[in-house]
């Protein structure tokens, strides 16, 4: 045996035999680049505090990942960029008003980063094994722990160096508390409301402010092939249908789907959060169900729930179902022979 092996040198390796240029770190950095337009829009509208908050999240995420892996004596994976991406997403999901020292709230991003990277990702086995989206768990933890600090929204100033800003309610907050009429009163008419929401000139989290900037990043990912259309389209589509049917006051089919689509974290969630490879189904038909579930749950929370915004909880709830969806929609294995089910055997 030994002799023949040496003579022939026949090497048999496990498939896949064709390797692509793509690596985990390349994908992570591409997604980070795709997030840049939305981040820059946030910086433009909320000033340097947006930069401080996001930088704090990125640095904390990278440091916690490095420290944890050092403590448990594992190889450092900071270089693959997943911790940086988590930090960037987490920072973009926080209000810029968190950068405040009286009352002191600047510790919130650091603790949220710890929850995201160590508890949600590393304790479950590291990248690829986490059940939930780390950035969203970090934000959910912060929102539930410091409900007041996490919902102080600054009025967009578009004056870059403004450090002080008036606080105001988000469009969804106004919609929830006072209804459509008040929303139109604040923003002028309907076209002006759409314009504010599209460009991002409105209160909200740092990264969710400009729908157009997020769309640019999302389309970049779509055309580079890093994400498929299934999740974003089914997410936005189902949410739009829900908003159209149930969003109106009184009568059915009188809601305004556009306001719901471009306000809040809907765009950011649909393009960047729900499409996370690890926590979404990998079968295409399953992705459609996953996205539709996210959209329907988001609208249920927005219209009937206690929170004005439901994207985060909707995606986290659907994250639990991702493995189940993958099992239900298992793709056909090439060359597999159909085996008799228990029912057929009984016959």
């Amino acid at each position: 045996m030994e002799a023949t092996k040496k003579e022939h040198q026949l090497l048999v390796s496990v498939s896949p035999h064709v390797k692509s240029e793509e690596t985990t770190s390349r994908i992570m950095w591409s997604v980070s680049i795709a997030l840049l337009p939305a981040f820059l829009a946030g910086v433009y509208f909320f000033g340097p505090r947006a930069v401080f908050i996001t930088a704090l999240c990125i640095i904390s995420c990278a440091v916690f990942e490095k420290l944890y892996l050092k403590i448990v004596d594992k190889q450092s994976t900071v270089g693959d960029g997943s911790a940086v991406l988590t930090g960037l997403l987490l920072g973009m999901n926080m209000p810029a008003s968190l950068w405040s020292f009286s009352p002191f709230t600047a510790h919130v991003p650091v603790i949220a980063s710890f929850i995201a990277v160590v508890i949600t990702k590393q304790l479950f086995g590291g990248l690829g094994f986490n059940v939930f989206n780390p950035a969203l768990i970090g934000r959910a933890f912060a929102l539930i722990s410091w409900p007041k600090a996490m919902t102080i929204w600054n009025e967009p100033t578009a004056a870059f160096m403004a450090m002080d800003a008036k606080t105001t309610a988000t469009p969804l907050g106004i919609l929830k508390e006072e209804g459509v009429a008040k929303l139109l009163e604040v923003f002028g008419d309907k076209m002006s409301l759409y314009q504010h929401l599209l460009t991002g000139n409105r209160a909200g989290s740092i990264g969710e402010t400009s729908a157009i900037a997020i769309l640019i990043g999302g389309l970049f990912l779509l055309f580079r092939g890093y994400i498929s259309w299934h999740i974003p389209v089914s997410f936005l589509g189902s949410a739009a249908v829900m908003a159209w049917i149930f969003g109106g006051k009184g009568a059915l089919f009188s809601g305004d789907p556009i306001v719901h689509l471009i306000s809040g974290g809907m765009m950011l969630g649909a393009w960047f959060m729900a499409t996370d490879y690890v926590t979404s189904p990998s079968v295409r038909r399953g992705q459609i169900l996953f996205g539709a579930g996210c959209g329907v749950l988001t609208m249920i929370i927005r219209l009937k729930g206690g929170f004005p915004e439901g994207v985060m909880f909707a995606i986290l709830i659907m994250n639990c179902f991702a493995p189940l969806i993958d099992r239900g929609f298992r793709s056909k294995v090439f060359g597999a022979v159909k085996t008799a089910t228990a029912k057929e055997i009984k016959k």
Binding site: P103, F104, L123, F141, I144, S145, W146, P147, A149
Partner: peptide, 23 residues
Amino acid sequence: NTKPVLIMVLPAGGFLAVGILMA
């Protein structure tokens, strides 16, 4: 006096605390 981690006294925090202390 100011801002403790509110989630820890809620049920979700109970699971987190038990998990962390068990580990």
